[in-house]
């Protein structure tokens, strides 16, 4: 089993764990944690797509020939920033929902 496929499987599992959290856990904060787990799993997937066995960081050094592909990393970096924004927005909503309903739990 190559590292790549192994990591794809791990990412899949983490994604499902996150998905379960979003669907099944009643607490809003837990749901947001679930979203974060899903996000990191997708990032893990993207990074493992870009990585090569024995590849080095995409920094030009003398003597290094085999770089990992930098493009997925750029993608992940931007997606991470967006993820923080989403998390912040979601958390502020959760706080407001808690404040105006008196409980952080979602009903219905």
């Amino acid at each position: 089993m190559s590292t790549g496929n192994f990591l794809y499987g791990v990412a899949m599992l983490l994604f499902l764990i996150g998905f379960y959290t979003v669907l099944a856990r009643p607490s809003l904060i837990k749901k947001i944690i679930g979203i974060n787990i899903m996000e990191t799993s997708v990032f893990l997937f993207l990074i493992s797509v870009g990585s090569r066995r024995g590849g080095s960081a995409p920094i030009i050094l003398s003597g290094v020939k085999d770089y990992v592909n930098p493009l997925p990393q750029v993608v992940v970096l931007m997606a991470m920033v967006i993820a923080v924004g989403t998390t912040a927005l979601a958390l502020s909503m959760a706080v407001k929902i808690f404040e105006s309903s008196g409980a952080g739990e979602r009903r219905g």
Binding site: F15, L28, I35, M38, V49, L71, P72, V75, A90, I97
Partner: peptide
């Protein structure tokens, strides 16, 4: 707020799906 939160959850899942799809296409 509740409606928006539900929208956010589904929307975020949708954007993660897009990201996964992009990753696959890129690979």
């Amino acid at each position: 707020l509740k409606a928006s939160f539900r929208y956010l959850l589904m929307g975020t899942i949708s954007s993660l799906f897009v990201l996964l799809g992009i990753g696959l296409l890129y690979s």
